[in-house]
Design a protein around this nucleic acid. Structure first.
Lengths: 129, 129
DNA sequence: CTTGACCTTCCCGTGACTGGAACCCTCATT
DNA sequence: AATGAGGGTTCCAGTCACGGGAAGGTCAAG
């Protein structure tokens, strides 16, 4: 399979697939004309990467997870550790964003949103009261 | 005030303060020795920026908000529009992260986390069954 | 006079790509 | 045989909002 077909199949942009090769995650063969040729195991890896990235794992996490995936002697505790660390990051980010959302929501509610200049949002940002 | 004091006062790193000057957000005066000298209105702007950034507004949003802040003839609806668009982004991001958190949570719960290789997390990423 | 704490500019790196230029390969049509 | 469309290739620059670090100027204190 050429990169275009792989892109269609995996849903990953060709640019991304090449990038994953650049950083050593997926190594396709090459045809005589220089085109990348992907085997089924390459496609499998790319799908793995796509799912891991969709869960928000960093590329380095993905590298670790792939290595574990391909290691028959892995301990599931190692996988769980990576996942738990990532979950903690996600939850921290959610907490940050929730705080922003709450503040933004209050400010927006307090703002008349008409053609007058008075605005609690700007008052707050300006250090207000 | 020199940049170090401003950094202490605003809580912004000196690097960040210089960066804001680079991109034209805050323009301090210069002493004869080339040192930046910040007036109270500069400090005020930097505090404004710090608060806006803490609410997650992009730099471009900050630029817009500062312009509105300094425009006595603004309409609060313009401010509200910017804030609402940003809130929508924040909420979208929260939704994404919540989905990740839920999936990660389920997978982590299902993983034994012992020294055996069997792992539902990797099974899921691998496209499992 | 030197030390140390400031300050300056400049350039590179971050993460995970995305866009675009310039070029090659293959097949089908004119 | 030339042309055009639609693949593919490499390489370079840009994104966003800074942070790290080098090389050097400035200033007050001991």
């Amino acid at each position: 399979m050429n990169i275009g077909d792989v892109s269609t199949q995996t849903g990953l942009p060709a640019k991304t697939i090449r990038y994953y090769e650049d950083i050593g995650l997926v190594k396709p063969l090459r045809d005589d004309n220089g085109y990348r040729r992907y085997r089924s195991q390459d496609i499998h890896k790319l799908n793995f990467l796509g799912r891991a990235r969709a869960l928000g794992f960093t590329i380095e996490d993905c590298r670790t997870l792939m290595a574990l995936y391909e290691d028959d002697t892995r301990a599931s505790s190692d996988v769980k550790k990576v996942a738990r660390a990532h979950l903690a990051q996600v939850e921290a980010k959610i907490a940050d964003l929730n705080a922003m959302r709450d503040t933004l929501g209050h400010l927006i509610d307090a703002c008349a949103g008409d053609d007058r200049p008075d605005c609690p949002i700007l008052q707050d940002l300006g250090g207000k009261a």
